[in-house]
Computed example of a mutant assay.
Amino acid sequence: METMLRSVAMSGYFDVTRRLGLNPAALAQQAGIDAAALANSDDRVPAAACCRLLELTAEKAACPTFALLMAETRQKFGTGVVNVLLAHKRTLREVLLAAVEYRHLLNEALAVYVENAGETVTIREELVVEPGTPTKQAIELALGVLARHSSALLADHWKPRAVHFTHAAHADLTFHRRFFGCPLEFGSDFNGFVCAAADLDYPNPAADPELVRYAESLVAPLDPMGTDSTALEVRKAIYLLLPLEQATVEPVARHLRLSVRTMQRQLELADTSFSALVEEVRRELAVRYMSNPRYPIGRVAALLGYAQQGSFTNWFALRFGMTPRDWRNSVGRRGK
């Protein structure tokens, strides 16, 4: 089943592309997207194709900050009942938790997880699309939009301690520094923000509990998760929780607000299983982490849930036909 997103997630694409002197409809067609569907915020378009479109446009425009230019157009939460619901929650923490709850109505490819650690909070975002899909621009768009929404909600009280990206840094980070206004960490373990826990609980001046309750009553009957979407949501949760050593049945079911029994039954109906999805995600993340020479192999093993490097080496050799060290040497030679 192809992962889709609502075209509203690409809001700003046409305006920014034209501003850079390019033809957005022609580029959309080149990426395999119906330009009319992309222009209609209520239509759905393939998530992987949108990722490719962002990369293609940034390359054609010679503009590495293309996604952040799109994010700059997002002054406030968009229209639609879910966005109204989010915009009027009492705190940013409640906004993020609601975004997780209604994730299947916002962007099927985007996974969000709020990790509490004492006085700090880590907001993790992950894009789960077909393996091999370039996501550098798409991740920067997702984090840029989160920053814009958080700033609109909290004004000067949005002061993240750092923003993290799993991809490598751009040659010139001047625009990124101005846009995010906080330290930048590239080549990180995750994509997301580290914030003070207190900032997430600062009151939203625009909060309206009555409006939120009304919006929730309208959202409730919309697009309930079916068996196919449950498999996708489990996969996304594993992406987020595996590096935290929490990608077991109970934490994943809890994250999805499902009972373990219900989750497993729906996975069976989708002709898959929890263990099969963990294996798929572990393999994909292994390629991501092993491709980053900054990560020692022992660190990769830990991020993939192995306490012992030897166990990871055995698993890797079975899946890839060579040891992690040989694989990394082979990839390094091909990259030269």
Rank of each mutant, 00 (worst) to 15 (best):
Y13P: 04
E115Y: 14
R103A: 10
G12F: 04
S259Y: 15
E72Y: 13
V252F: 10
A237F: 11
A58D: 00
V121W: 12
H255F: 13
N107H: 05
L184D: 12
P160M: 13
G226W: 14
A47V: 00
E250W: 13
V260F: 03
R288I: 01
E2S: 08
Q246L: 04
R288G: 09
M1K: 10
T79R: 08
A270W: 12
G335Y: 13
F312D: 14
P293R: 06
D326L: 10
R294F: 10
A61V: 02
R6K: 00
P183E: 10
V84C: 00
R93G: 06
V128M: 03
L143A: 01
W327N: 15
A301R: 09
V100H: 14
K76L: 12
S291R: 13
V281H: 01
V300Y: 03
F179M: 12
V81P: 09
E280W: 01
S11E: 12
S150Y: 02
F165D: 01
A317D: 11
L269A: 04
V100P: 09
Q309D: 14
L92P: 02
L240N: 09
A67N: 00
R161E: 14
N204Y: 03
V128A: 10
P251G: 02
G132D: 00
Q264R: 13
F180I: 01
T323K: 05
Q308M: 10
V114D: 11
E185I: 03
G305R: 02
H176S: 08
R319H: 15
A198Y: 07
R283Y: 09
L269I: 05
V331K: 04
G181I: 11
G32V: 05
A37N: 06
A67G: 04
T174D: 03
A196K: 15
A26N: 14
V278Y: 04
G192N: 03
E268W: 13
L127M: 06
A117G: 11
V281N: 01
G332R: 10
A67P: 02
A307W: 14
S275M: 07
R124S: 13
P205K: 05
V219L: 15
N292I: 07
E210S: 03
F175H: 15
R6V: 05
S217P: 02
L85F: 15
V194H: 08
V84G: 01
V260K: 13
L184H: 10
G144N: 01
L173W: 09
M10W: 13
V129F: 01
E108S: 02
A307F: 11
M1S: 07
C195T: 10
S275R: 08
G187H: 03
H167F: 08
Y289S: 08
A98K: 05
L92K: 15
A307P: 09
D208R: 08
T17I: 01
K60M: 06
V163H: 01
S229C: 06
V281M: 02
G78R: 10
N83I: 07
